[in-house]
């Protein structure tokens, strides 16, 4: 995303720095997050990461108690 469009003016050096810092944190924090390699859930001992990602529905809300 173009930061000038986003801010309606050119970014300051600290805004550019925090943008780049966030970009860098997406790797370890999101795309390589250890939880995506968790050996868990209902007896599944090991699920290849790609399969896990294909079968993990992303949107949840607490279900109302029945």
């Amino acid at each position: 995303m173009d930061l000038t469009d986003y801010l309606g003016r050119p970014p300051t050096p600290s805004e550019t720095a925090i943008f780049r810092d966030q970009q860098a944190r997406l790797g370890p924090g999101i795309f390589e997050n250890p939880l995506l390699r968790s050996e868990i859930v209902e007896g599944i001992a090991f699920v290849p990461r790609a399969a896990r990602l294909m079968t993990t529905r992303p949107l949840i809300e607490p279900e109302l108690p029945q």
């Binding site: 986003y6 943008f19 780049r20 997406l26 999101i30 997050n33 939880l35 995506l36 992303p58 949107l59």
Partner: peptide
Amino acid sequence: VQAAAIPAHAYLRAQQIRRV
């Protein structure tokens, strides 16, 4: 400004982590 560095698939990947 952090949000500008977050593509849609990173947001959805975060929701997958949330589910796990």
